[in-house]
Design a protein around this nucleic acid. Structure first.
Lengths: 340, 340
DNA sequence: ACGGAAAAAGAAAACGTTTGCGGACGGCGC
DNA sequence: GCGCCGTCCGCAAACGTTTTCTTTTTCCGT
């Protein structure tokens, strides 16, 4: 039996409407009356029932956040500022982890839409992403995509994957590497595709022919990266440098390399897309491309707020710039300057 | 103008009640009628309005999750399985990050309670935790505490901090260390207190007197740990071993040690409470106490479900066992056996 | 063919707000 | 003293369900 406006109104000797108007500051109420209401509110410990309010107002001030994997530090680095921005704007987040699985993605989005979230921020899976977004659109729930794109006719904020990866690979080529391996991400993700494209362009810049044997998919995660790296290393003519298309795969690769008792960068160079906060504690320090996670999170809610304010505006596409951290795992000395 | 049961009932040529009963399987409906309703549901793309349902049923099937810091890998390791368990039980999670700040904690809990979550899973802050929990109790929202305890008359699941820390410190003592430094966590957290207690008992076991100069608080986070470690190292008679009371502080310490160009464990031993998934990639590999994060997450929702089913049962207290990972940062060889 | 039980399904009252509409009251100008 | 305007505030109808209670229909035994 929680306290309702009814109880407050009774205690204050006013009508329910007046209580509501005091609570929401939605029409002028003389100080004396307002004070009575306030007193009653404090005396009873009344808290407005957000559920009832949402029902009436047909909005929940709630955002659904569906991401690939909370235990991936990249995502948490995005979620953190994203949550802060959402709260600042008066929204709360409903979190779901779709585990990069199209079925769970569909189910999760259904649940979120059923809960009548005002908007959906989503890192769409490869397979079902477009369909899931279509579903949301059908229900008039605005969607902002992060990290990757499943529907180009929809807001998104992503990194400039292709040119950055290109730059990174070109750097390896410039250091003389001829056999550069690539651990590619989950199939079907736009980010995977773009980074592969960057890899190929980087090779081209370096005058290296693309060798399909050196590009293997490692599903964006650690264990497969570990396994495929072992395979690459066992090749008769193994790569002399390795590019991991995300953070987790870099770790898998590093683990495999250590197991083989090889040394980075002496025996093999290793660079990666995505940064770790504590990369400097790894041995060796990894040369990486860092995404501006805070910026991504903040853009995501900004796009969403704008969209909410203006549902029919044309879709907006944000490409955030990454920064290249030049460390030693590419074989350069610690104090080498920035990469061309 | 979303689709309501009204629309479905009109299309199916039945009453709203019948639609509701079909949707919820809440009374016998002959196959023919059921089919008509189902067809109408699919034709319209109807999705029940969870808000309205929640209002009527006075339950939201939603759990509030308020944790200290999403970007702390310990918390995400707990959140991940916790989310999975919640979803499996038909609940969704509302996530808030209270940033270890009592004010934000209060505000966040207010918001969650206002949203009428069915339960609250919380890692209470030191200062305001007890008060916040009292607030929730007043509103009859069940609370499960994780990681630390602010109200002992309330469910919780925590690690066996004190004996584990004691074991770890004793191990250092047994290896001959006489000056063992301690980076303590945020003031006021029960976990901080318990780990300090373990530290003192460990010293005692090793026949070492407690030296207040060697125990410094580092606020459970990286930057302060970095700073205080530098100070410890600058002592005229610096510690020969260091115990970090959580993961982030271990990283801060490691960074400081590297900056001073000291080597672990040759110049100073370093051990830590909390594990990293990729500890094996650090140099050196850290000897740590690993909390069973999955178990913690699962226990948290189990406690909550039980509590929901049985609000007046006596509070339950779960202490989960940690495992000690014996690696090289304590100065032992890689293949040393388990710690006594 | 009829009574009556069982089966099927509808009507309507909640749930706790928000909000449009309009009533009561007082003061002011004429 | 009358009409009018402004201020303050209450009434009641939504919002989309769930659920109790009731009504209608079906179907069976006799």
């Amino acid at each position: 039996m929680p306290i309702t406006m009814r109880d407050v109104s009774a205690m204050a000797g006013v009508s329910i409407s007046t209580v509501s108007h005091v609570v929401n500051n939605t029409r002028a109420v003389p100080d004396r009356t307002r004070q009575k209401v306030m007193d009653a509110i404090h005396a009873t410990g009344f808290m407005p029932n957000t559920i009832a309010r949402s029902l009436k107002r047909a909005e929940t001030r709630t955002l659904g956040l569906a991401i690939g994997d909370i235990s991936n530090p990249y995502f948490t680095a995005v979620v953190h500022p994203l949550e802060a921005a959402a709260v600042k704007a008066g929204y709360t987040l409903i979190l779901t982890d779709i585990g990069e699985d199209p079925d769970r993605e569909t189910a999760a989005l259904q649940a979120l839409i059923g809960r009548r979230v005002d908007g959906l921020i989503l890192s769409p899976s490869g397979a079902g992403g477009a369909q899931a977004i279509a579903h949301a659109k059908r229900n008039k729930v605005p969607v902002v995509q992060i990290d990757r794109i499943a529907d180009r006719d929809c807001d998104y904020v992503v990194a400039s994957n292709q040119p950055d990866m290109q730059r990174l690979v070109r750097h390896l080529a410039q250091r003389g590497h001829k056999r550069i391996g690539m651990l590619a991400g989950l199939n079907g993700l736009s980010s995977t595709q773009e980074r592969i494209e960057g890899y190929r362009l980087g090779l081209k810049d370096g005058g290296i022919a693309f060798d399909p044997d050196l590009m293997v998919t490692a599903d964006s995660s650690m264990a497969p990266a570990h396994a495929t790296t072992l395979k690459l290393l066992a090749l008769p003519n193994p790569p002399t440098a390795l590019v991991a298309s995300n953070n987790l795969m870099a770790l898998g690769a590093l683990r495999a390399i250590k197991e083989r008792r090889l040394s980075v960068p002496r025996d093999i160079a290793l660079v990666a897309f995505d940064e770790f906060e504590w990369t400097d504690l790894f041995q060796p320090r990894l040369t990486t491309i860092a995404q501006p996670c805070q910026e991504i999170g903040e853009w995501a809610v900004k796009l969403m707020l704008d969209r909410l304010a203006n549902p029919d505006a044309p879709p907006r596409h944000i490409h955030v710039a990454t920064t290249l951290h030049h460390r030693e795992s590419c074989g350069c000395p610690a104090d080498a300057g920035p990469i061309a």
